[in-house]
Amino acid sequence: MAIEARCLTKHYGKAVGVQDLSLEVKPGEIFGFLGPNGAGKTTTIRLLMGLIRPTRGSARIFGLDCQREAVAVKRMVGNLPGELSLYGGLTGNQLLVHLDGVRGNRSLSYARGLAERLSIELDRPIRTLSHGSKQKIGLIQALMHRPPLVILDEPTTGLDPLVQQEVYSILDEVREDGRTVFFSSHILPEVERLCDRVAIIGRGQLLVVENIEDLRQRSTRRMEVTFAEPVPPQVLELPDVSALEWSGKTARFVLRSNVDAVIKAISHYPVADLRVWEKTLEDVFLSYYEEVGDAPADDSRQVAAR
């Protein structure tokens, strides 16, 4: 297993970071780790990196214990932290030289190639760079030594769409190499674009692990149909439609499964406007919370990013 967590638990005082998290990530897959803010994603990543000590339980990366064999683990891992801090006084180049040296590697030519693809200038002091540019340097340092496992905490935050696409294709290449990617995100299209499997975590607990296809099936979208003339309200009473509301000639509802049934049903009437909202991860989380009978109302016990 690339990653193997067993009953991983971390409490910060009374607050729960993660609770009894057990998880397996196979070598060669891109694994998405999803959850709302404060769900325990960052805590899990810090545990995997051996930067914090579990209250109980353990985690292994390629069979090595993340606590006792932390240095050997880190040799095989590249990590982009969620809250990235770089040495502001160094230029991007100098920072990469430093980290390359500390790792005992010689991987700077690959790093420069990545910098070119992400279109970032490496000769300016890091403190003068924008958030997005710093994020790019963070990505490069996580990827440059071609680690067997890449752990990324929200890798595309602050990047513009073109660069995001480039990051996706870099991660595709990592997978083609047979290497493993474990990344946290709350952007659903990104997750659908990249992942083979996903885990959903909420309030420090693992809710579900499933294939990306199953996630797609399960997810819902919100729709709004405005008809050109009044129609009988039964038109939209379909098996996969819920939360149906009418206001005049406009119907708003939530749709499970695909849009085909709705298209067919409304095609008999003149449609003035049709809007479909991109499903968000929040909707997905909600559907899982409903499933476990535990709506995320009370989040006071949950610590935020730390």
Partner: peptide, 11 residues
């Protein structure tokens, strides 16, 4: 926060 960066390396 830079300590996190250094300790993410095999050091």
């Amino acid at each position: 926060g830079t300590l996190y960066l250094v300790l993410s390396q095999p050091v």
